[in-house]
């Protein structure tokens, strides 16, 4: 386990060290110019926000119905990752929006649903922190409901407002731009995987410390 983690950390380090050059050498987009480069940062964080949110929902369901402690550790770790990556996405997005649409924020479906997803997971973390004993279970319920809510938020905001570039942009990207994008994506993926694994392990250790305290109490 440790060996793989070191390896993954190495890969992430190499990607993060070299990605700036790859992004620098990628061609300038005609209309957006330099701002388009945000894309290599914004898209991976956005996609991975959704991926980790899904992981958290699935882990929460497993914890709730199978009572697996490890699933709960993974759920906490991935929820924190959602908030972290979501923050990156929400900071980098408006920079793009300012140039593309002339406003920092707009109530477009994708923006609004991302914001709501981020807020749902902030609420989850608040519950875990301040809910007192039993909040692990309550959090699992919250994550599950938050998951089921994503399509509803999307559809409802879609009918309410619509500016964000369609996702069809990515498959149709010219290779000189697609290369750096996927490269950056790899870096983000590997790095977040390392962080989540470490965070889940930390949570496990914390549980073990609690158990040891209890055992020490007894003897």
């Amino acid at each position: 386990m440790r060996k793989y983690l070191h390896l993954a950390l190495g890969v992430a380090a190499v990607v993060f060290a070299t990605a700036p050059f790859a992004i620098h050498w990628a061609p300038y987009e005609v209309t957006m110019g330099l701002v388009q480069k945000i894309f290599y940062f914004h898209v991976p964080s956005a996609i991975l926000t959704l991926v980790w949110a899904l992981v958290c929902g699935v882990a929460s369901a497993i914890f709730l119905f199978r009572k697996s402690k490890y699933a709960d550790y993974v759920a906490v770790a991935s929820a924190e990752m959602v908030v972290l990556l979501g923050s990156m996405m929400l900071v980098s997005g408006p920079l793009w929006g300012r140039k593309a649409w002339g406003v920092w924020w707009t109530w477009d479906p994708r923006l609004t649903s991302s914001l709501m997803l981020w807020i749902t997971f902030l609420a989850y973390l608040l519950l875990r922190r301040f809910g007192g004993p039993g909040s692990d279970k309550l959090g699992a319920g919250m994550a599950l409901f938050g998951m089921a809510n994503v399509p509803f938020i999307y559809v409802s905001v879609n009918y309410w407002r619509t500016l964000h570039p369609q996702t069809t942009v990515i498959p149709n990207l010219v290779p000189p731009m697609a290369g750096p994008l996927w490269f950056a994506m790899l870096g983000f993926l590997v790095f977040s995987l390392v962080l989540v694994t470490l965070r889940a392990q930390l949570e496990e250790q914390r549980d073990r410390v609690e158990a040891l305290y209890l055992a020490a109490d007894e003897s």
């Binding site: 004993p133 609690e210 305290y213 209890l214 109490d217 007894e218």
Partner: peptide
């Protein structure tokens, strides 16, 4: 049964 680090009942 324990509540966090507090042990309410032991063996």
């Amino acid at each position: 049964r324990s509540f966090g680090r507090r042990r309410a009942l032991a063996r």
